[in-house]
Amino acid sequence: MAAPIDAVGAKSSSTNILIRRIISYTVLTIFAFLALFPFLLLIIQMTRSSVEINQGFKPFPGGSFGANFKTVMNNNNWRMLKALRNSFIVSGLTAALSTYFSALTAYAIHVYDFKLRKFLFTFILMIMMVPAQVSALGFVRLVNDMGLQNSYIPLIVPAIAAPATFFFMKQYMESSLPLDIVEAARIDGCGEFRTFNSLVTPILKPAIAVQAIFTFVSSWNNFFIPALILDDPNKRTLPIVIQIIRSQDLASLDLGAVYVAIGISIVPVAIVYLILSKFIIRGIALGAVKG
């Protein structure tokens, strides 16, 4: 808001502001605590044995993390290590394909003047709002017809057409990709495809990084479609394993191991987020302007 320009009544307004600052910091700190509290409980419970957990909650860590971790890894019903690996493969490839081809598409619409350009741009904006669940039925039947159940192709390849990523790239190009660069490359005899790969992608690096993070995270968390396509225990991704744990009777399970299994799905992403947070927060604000 505006810069302070109180000349008159400066004293009364400064105590006023002090009170308002104290109130706002208090409320904000309560909410920060609320946002972190579930994860704090998770980390404490991950280190306690099932017996300790059943005896009631104690607000300090125990020494059973290693044992719980071993129990998770040895649980042949969950196959957590495989799920972790599968999630990495699917999310990594999804992020790579999605950002590269969305950038390529945005580049085509940004740089080249062709007849369908305007139409295609409007079309992509229109399909941005269609929820994925709406075509899930047709998608699952198509995958079955193609014999691609338990394959990662139907989870990875569709990411090539990512309208939201496309839109972000297009916005970014408008502000930071001057067409003169493309023309200069052309004069130097650089081919169109090579111009994109070796000249344009380095300029787009910040946008590609932000979108790669977002796509990775949303693929990592994706539950609805993978659960309909993957049923081979060796092919499952993490959210499906979470569903399998949930469908078992909690009382019959080793609770320390349950918490560690949840932690494996949460903690790596949380750590990566905290490391890259400044970058990510800036990215959301960039995305917000589009609205």
């Binding site: 949840i262 949460i266 990510i280």
Partner: peptide, 10 residues
């Protein structure tokens, strides 16, 4: 950024 399914389970 946390997996919604894992949040539910947690």
């Amino acid at each position: 950024v946390i997996m919604a399914a894992a949040m539910g389970m947690l």
